[in-house]
């Protein structure tokens, strides 16, 4: 129909596949996220540490460069589980800030003017909707966490040989599984908070509350009741426990780095960490489902 010919015409052209339509929503979400001015500098920071690590691995294998730089070999770090603990911790901390910045504004605008009911009157399911809104965040956080981690493993393997990978096969496994677990939890939490808290700064603040106040409360419980189960409220310790188990086959005290570490002599069983994380994921999914189902129909 030409713009000068104002008559209604039915559409008879090609249609996209029904199961890929959520990708259209993902594209719009991505474009909205990209428009955030604050997100871009944080993202740059997110790619800094992997660059430093790439350089570190390169130097670790380049004797000529080490001689030129007059570096003592014994002072150099080893490319082992500790190296990747540091990498994962630094990147996970940055990804947390990215999620707190980019996550909370994803669902609340759809709810504030009942736009969700119009969206869901289209041939997409509630799951499609959540996937479409969440996928760009998952992709973004993956690009900061486990994807560069795998690149580092590939670089190290290419320089040190496949024997290194044979000995350290748990590292890439831990990067992918542990990274996806972290990214999934962060994204779901950001979506759930976005669905329930209208204002972005408040939703972002609530994420900090859950991660830091929860940990403080858990530590207080441990002190008062002389136990270690309070760490189940500490998401960072839960993640560190899971990462340590994935990387080393056990979660011993002291494993981890920065904000993500396993408390010495206060280790919690790995199964309980998995269980606590599963409960958190289930709670986020339940909160999301409840909110979206409630807003689906305009009464």
């Amino acid at each position: 129909m030409a713009v000068y010919n104002r008559s209604y015409q039915r559409y008879e052209g090609p249609l996209t596949k029904a199961n890929t339509r959520f990708l259209a929503l993902a594209r719009y979400t991505w474009e909205e996220m990209r428009a955030s001015r604050l997100l871009t500098p944080v993202l740059y920071v997110g790619f800094l540490w992997p660059l430093v690590c790439i350089l570190g691995i390169y130097l670790n294998h380049n004797l000529d460069a080490l001689r030129a730089l007059q570096v003592n070999m014994s002072e150099l770090f080893a490319i082992d589980t500790n190296f990747f603990y540091v990498f994962l911790s630094v990147q996970s901390t940055i990804s947390f800030f990215v999620a707190a910045l980019a996550g909370p504004g994803r669902i609340s605008p759809d709810l504030s003017n009942r736009g969700l009911s119009t969206l869901l009157a289209r041939p997409i399911s509630r799951t499609d909707y959540v996937l479409g809104r969440m996928l760009p965040l998952v992709a973004l956080l993956s690009c900061i966490t486990w994807v560069p981690g795998l690149l580092l493993v590939a670089q190290q393997t290419s320089l040190a040989g496949t024997e290194w990978l044979g000995v350290n096969w748990r590292i890439p496994l831990a990067l992918v599984v542990g990274g996806l677990l972290w990214v999934g939890l962060l994204s779901l939490l950001a979506m759930a908070l976005s669905a329930w808290v209208r204002w972005k700064p408040v939703a972002g603040g609530a994420m900090f509350m859950i991660f830091f106040v929860g940990a403080g409360f858990g530590a207080l419980l441990n002190q008062l009741l002389e136990m270690r189960w309070g760490h189940l409220l500490n998401v960072r310790t839960l993640m560190a426990t899971v990462w340590a188990w994935l990387m080393e086959g056990q979660a011993t005290g002291g494993a981890g780095f920065g904000l993500f570490y396993v408390f010495e002599q206060q280790e919690i069983p790995v199964w309980s960490a998995f269980l606590a994380l599963a409960v958190m994921v289930a709670a986020c999914v339940r909160l999301l489902a409840k909110r979206i189902q409630g807003a689906e129909v305009v009464r």
């Binding site: 249609l15 259209a24 759809d110 003017n113 736009g115 969206l119 289209r122």
Partner: peptide, 22 residues
């Protein structure tokens, strides 16, 4: 029932895409 920050065109285009239009 709308998304306030989106332009009318962008909103309607998104709706068309969700209905299956390329």
């Amino acid at each position: 029932s709308f998304i306030a920050h989106m332009s009318g065109l962008r909103f309607v285009r998104m709706m068309a895409e969700l209905s299956g239009l390329p």
